[in-house]
Design a protein around this nucleic acid. Structure first.
Lengths: 190, 190
DNA sequence: TAAAATCGTTGACCTACATCAAGACTTTTA
DNA sequence: TAAAAGTCTTGATGTAGGTCAACGATTTTA
């Protein structure tokens, strides 16, 4: 259980000596059911979580009141809103599980403690944060392309996504309707 | 010159005691001309910069080879790509000045030193980084709305942008053609 | 296990925005 | 300061993807 997180830290901060006991002390295993929310717009993000098993979507509410997916996460991903978590301000992000999901969670207070205490965890956090920023920017440039191109790029990047995420959810992420995605898939095959 | 940066740090980390001499030691004033690039895709981001006076655009190249603006920056904003700067990996961002621009720049090495040395600068960096992440995510949800709505939202957020940035550049940011923006503006007024 | 809800597909029709082209105005360059 | 380049506008025309509606298949709920 904890090993998955420790492995992930090791992968991102090579040659480090992270203490297993410290991890067990600061993180709590937690189970969420499909459709449950981890985070809702307007609330303060009290926990950060690391996915052991399962998957989730992040979405926002557009000015017209529609849900728009901004991303998905699977095993070995972090969830929580950095901005809200760090500054303890209301978040704009919604996170909902698409499968029953097992997490390791950490409170903001524990996160600060661990951040102060462990050089290794500091580097790990730092590294992940830069990666996350990059990912969200990448997404923006893709949006100037046709839905077809965006869909292709998505499948190239995450070939397995079709097995885990419904077309409705993928369509929302691509900023098109489920009908449009259906037609696009049809024309793609034939 | 240096005061603008010091003021900005004070505003973001209230009640701090930042040493003016330290700032002068670590940062270098630099002048860029309109149309010059601060950062180009594929290169490693060697400098971070703080805008004293002037303005810039960030853009990316889409898969179809077109420039797509991802944002603008003015006085008191930072430029540079965190991911590239921190990990010294090639950037995906292009930054070009839209006016002659005065900056205070800092090298990656100096940034690390100052980050280690100054608790205050650490907090400042940390805070700005969270803000930046938020801004880019915000942008994503807006893209599901009509061009008209996106334009309105942009003007509400940055009413002065019209005086500083050409319609071409704004159109690119809104993911529409300059023609479409022109027509949209016309129908808005009448 | 029956009823209700959700999902993916398809058809008919509509509209927001793209593309191409051309002219008037302004800014940059030599 | 004349020529060249870029900007904004407007017109004509094309198209990707939206909306609404309906149906069978699957999943969820009671």
């Amino acid at each position: 259980m904890y090993d998955k997180l420790i492995d992930h830290i090791r992968q991102n901060v090579p040659g480090t000596s992270i203490d297993k006991q410290t991890i067990e002390e600061y993180f709590t295993p937690q189970l969420f059911e499909k459709k449950e929310h981890f985070l809702k717009q307007g609330y303060i993000c009290k926990l950060a979580g690391f996915v052991i098993e399962g998957c989730y979507r992040n979405y926002m509410i557009s000015a017209e009141g529609k849900e728009v997916n901004t991303g998905f996460g699977f095993e070995n991903w972090w969830l929580g809103d950095v901005s809200s978590f760090v500054n303890q301000t209301p978040t704009l992000i919604n996170t909902q599980f698409l499968e029953n999901t097992r997490l390791l969670t950490i409170t903001a207070k524990n996160h600060i403690d661990l951040f102060e205490k462990s050089q290794c965890f500091r580097e790990y956090t730092y590294k992940l944060r830069s990666k996350a920023t990059m990912a969200s920017v990448l997404k923006l440039s893709e949006l100037s392309e046709s839905a077809r191109t965006r869909y292709k790029v998505l499948l190239e990047k995450y070939p397995k996504i079709q097995q885990r995420v419904s077309q409705r959810q993928i369509a929302s992420f691509l900023h098109i309707t489920p009908e449009a995605l259906s037609r696009l898939r049809k024309s793609e095959i034939s």
